[in-house]
Design a protein around this nucleic acid. Sequence first.
DNA 1: CCCTAAACTGGAATGATTCCAGTTGAGGTC
DNA 2: GACCTCAACTGGAATCATTCCAGTTTAGGG
Lengths: 143, 143
Amino acid sequence: MTSTAPTAATPEDLLRGAGLRVTAARVAALHAVGDQQHATADDVLSSVRAELGTVSVQAVYDVLHALTGADLLRRIEPAGHPARYERRTGDNHHHVVCRRCGAIGDVDCSVGHAPCLTPSDDHGFVVETAEVTYWGLCPDCSA
Amino acid sequence: MTSTAPTAATPEDLLRGAGLRVTAARVAALHAVGDQQHATADDVLSSVRAELGTVSVQAVYDVLHALTGADLLRRIEPAGHPARYERRTGDNHHHVVCRRCGAIGDVDCSVGHAPCLTPSDDHGFVVETAEVTYWGLCPDCSA
DNA sequence: CCCTAAACTGGAATGATTCCAGTTGAGGTC
DNA sequence: GACCTCAACTGGAATCATTCCAGTTTAGGG
């Protein structure tokens, strides 16, 4: 509920709105993920370096953690593939993942919402979220 | 459809039924995962070593791959935690995962089946399976 | 019983991510 | 506008699960 602006807000505004310091690396990282949805840490590192010159690996991981913690980015971690980051946060949408190349597509829950989110038997677990991952082959890899 | 015996079949029978060679390591691994559902590769390694003495790390990974490939085991790979293996295969059931300790519980799909399995928009992906993961805290960790 | 491909040994390598100790810089204060 | 402090960044080493590799053993068909 903090920021209502959809995508119009600048990275700087987003950072300030989240109470985070505005640094070159963070701004560049937000640009990077904005340009390339579902970017890996490595993708972000390349983008940020292209924009700023020398940036340490650690800086990018720090930035990604900070942004993920502030809900400016969402982290996706498909089994067997490096983590990816996206800017669509807050809504509970899911993903199609390509088994071969790791490409990702966004998928809105087909049933709507609730059913997917309530396990039949929770084994005493306190369940916070449900995550749906569709596995298959992307258009390129299925050819 | 190969084997119809539920859990009564011995590891040896299961292996032969799947056309795999019967080796000590494989039998021991099946025992290990049978005793401790959702065991990690490391858990299996310990169990197998306890049963057989010296067994290489690689052997256990090889065995787990072979058994997974033959559908005698199913591999679960929760984000941020080492992979785990279970003997319940073939049915499409899901999991509750503890964010803190990685403990896992089995969950049957509450909606039944189909809805969870059909993305609203597949982005041209050829979707094979859908995987639902419930994230939360296990009884121990929520205390 | 023998032979061969499949399975196993042990040690080194990989790749994503994190830890660490020291340096830099954002942004509030005077 | 200069100063100060803690958060952010640097660079290099470490971690952890997993895989690769080259050589040795063994299951099980002939």
